[in-house]
Design a protein around this nucleic acid. Sequence first.
RNA 1: GGAGGGUUAUCGAAGUGGUCAUAACGAGGCGGUCUUGAAAACCGUUUGCCGGCAACGGCGCGUGAGUUCGAAUCUCACACCCUCCGCCA
Length: 428
Amino acid sequence: MIDLKFLRENPDVVRQNIKNKFQDSKLPLVDEVIALDDAYRSFKLEGDTLRGDRNKLSKQIGALMAQGKKEEAEAVKKQVTDAAERLAELEKLEEEYSEKIKKIMMTIPNIIDPSVPIGKDDSENVEVQKYGEPKVPDFEIPYHTDIMESLGGLDLDSARKVAGNGFYYLMGDIARLHSAIISYARDFMIDRGFTYCIPPFMIRSEVVTGVMSFAEMDAMMYKIEGEDLFLIGTSEHSMIGKFIDTIIPEDKLPQTLTSYSPCFRKEKGAHGIEERGVYRIHQFEKQEMIVVCKPEQSPYWFDQLWQNTVDLFRTMDIPVRTLECCSGDLADLKVKSVDVEAWSPRQKKYFEVGSCSNLGDAQARRLKIRVNGKDGKKYFAHTLNNTVVAPPRMLIAFLENNLNEDGSINIPKVLQPYMGGKTVICKK
RNA sequence: GGAGGGUUAUCGAAGUGGUCAUAACGAGGCGGUCUUGAAAACCGUUUGCCGGCAACGGCGCGUGAGUUCGAAUCUCACACCCUCCGCCA
């Protein structure tokens, strides 16, 4: 959500930004919202004046009543009542117009960073850098579910029976490996100065509508029947929700948090859960990181965040690359975003394991996350988020990259303490 | 789940229909006087949002609705906190 004042003063910048994102159908919204805003302000001015008059007259009535001048008071009362109808009308208009304005402003994309490559869709995303050697062994790598099953670590049949498609039982060493990765990732982030946090796994509708559109909500969020609660799709939502409608003293910034949570997603729409196995599922676990900082520091933190994920994967010897999201593929709230992708020696390509985003002040404006500056001036914070690791999916990369020809899996040194000293997981 | 009490500014807290958001009183913060310096004392100052170049005006006393010429104050719903009872890992 961009600043309405900015739009009013720089409509051409906003229009060019919309063009850069290949959303030309939204171009008329700029003039539309300017006209609505103009009308809104005139309604507000007239309404404010009437409310001001009413306040004055009401005081007079009070004074007259106190003096016992009942008839005069009644005459003034009539004046107020006469204006009431117009005022009610104006109040309705004010509400109606500010709603319309807000609705449009939510759909006008955030101004993208000048460094974002211009492109229509995900096919035009740009590889930034590779880390590690993407190797393809000379033996065949099975599908990840086959690897897991051969190690006695996955039971999809039972999961389907108990919960349906899109759920899994992880078993034995694979389940332990999953937990080991989460624990290791948690400690990795704590070592880098982040504060560990376990947030609520359910959030109120008020928070949900603050962080996503109705369409997104419908496609992702599970609602608890009979309660005003939704299961989180990512802990980003409950983490950022921590700061909704707060004014943070400048010296308390940056807030750097890393959170653990299960995540629940309906995955309704575009992809569904057609990918077999544990790639796209209704329930998974994730270690996340978020930062709330001063505006001038968000580019620095953006680089820190994706670098953390890259470093984490490299300590487990998984080759990764960073892929810069092009303008057309960038979500409307984001200023800039890079995906971290892990190497799949089976598919001989990289696939997404995390996504790092700088939202500028757009999310903060929407959620009223402000900073109290040293000079007493208030301004909106910048917010960023990134996946540390989401194990069921990253396990695919992990297993494929650490698989030996005999079907066993090497445990990287960094994970061994979390696996009771095990160096290898052997076939059953 | 049931009963009772509560939610006011940075904090504590008064305010039960108009001169109480110009929010008593106390504390804290900031500026000053005094002091070699500090403390104490004294004086001043100290909320957010919206509109406006400004003057100024409007809104905000947990949230939302309602009654009223006028609501922190009355009514209703909801949220949260405290105490007790019940249930429970």
